[in-house]
Amino acid sequence: MSTELELERPAQPPSFQGISTGRKAKNLAATVMVSLCFVVAVIPLVWVLWTVASRGMESLLRADWWSHSLSGVRANEDLGGAYHAIYGTIAQGLVTAVIAVPIGILVGIYLVEYGAGTRFARVTTFTVDILTGVPSIVAALFVYSVWISIFGFSRSAFANCLALLLLMIPMVVRSTEEMLRVVPNELREASYALGIPKWKTIVKVVIPTALSGIVTGVMLGVARIMGETAPALILMAYSARINMDIFEGSMANLPLLMVKEFTNPEAAGFNRTWGAALTLILIIMLFNLAATLVSRLSAVKTK
């Protein structure tokens, strides 16, 4: 029907309606800026990691670093190691996790399985959000005023754990909540249909399904609190020797070791500070890696 029309058509105009050079330039500029932003963030990351790795490597290569404390070692001697602080970091991290995990998981269960939609659940969610934002130094002061001032306990690694607890609970709640929410409802209903009571359904069906996700969250949480320094400054005293008892006496951890040694002007102090930094990063990486691994492995399983 339009054949004549086509024959009448004059020589071809450009087929596509162009867009102005200005718009193209703006688009290009935006692309460049946005990519630059990413680069700007990568620079400090690489710079920090490089600094820590290059400065800390020397200490880590000494066998003593992993097996000895700094007990009896003078400030200028490149001897001894961080064994006491490594022990402290891991012990405090684990003790904190052992207390925080059941509480956090229970809160998460409450929020998803029992409280969903109620007013109190909303208050709890809000509180968890606020708790997430409480600065570690404030958590430390709180533990100080209750545990040390009022109850009269002395400073100890355990007091530090109590402050870390406040920081870790919201992380566990969050990851539990998130994982429980993705457990399909059919699973719960199938279990109810078999006449299994709610609590048993949660323990036997819901939690196992969400477990790997929760474990991943917990590992990430532990990795996070192991780098915390502020509570340790207030709630415990540094010891250069090995102390296995988290309830009694002074004890070290890697951040405290760094705080202690960065003022040591000797080369040995420099090595210890950065050695501890590198060790701390490695431990955190290890936990992060394990967390990723757990979530990977279980992701394969659910497929």
């Binding site: 509480i103 229970l106 809160v107 269960i109 409450y110 929020l111 399985e113 029992y114 409280g115 109190f120 659940a121 208050v123 709890t124 509180t127 968890v128 606020i130 708790l131 409480v134 404030v138 958590a139 002061l141 709180f142 005023s145 209750v146 001032s149 009022i150 406040l166 609970i169 919201p170 709640v173 709610k198 609590w199 949660i202 323990v203």
Partner: peptide
């Protein structure tokens, strides 16, 4: 039982925030 435990933990977290404010104030 289990329900109570879960609810209690929720309450604990809420109480915690209040406690932080109150005890800091008391000591200050």
């Amino acid at each position: 039982m289990f329900r109570g435990l879960a609810l209690g933990s929720g309450g604990f977290v809420v109480a915690l925030i209040a406690a932080i404010g109150i005890f800091l104030l008391l000591q200050a």
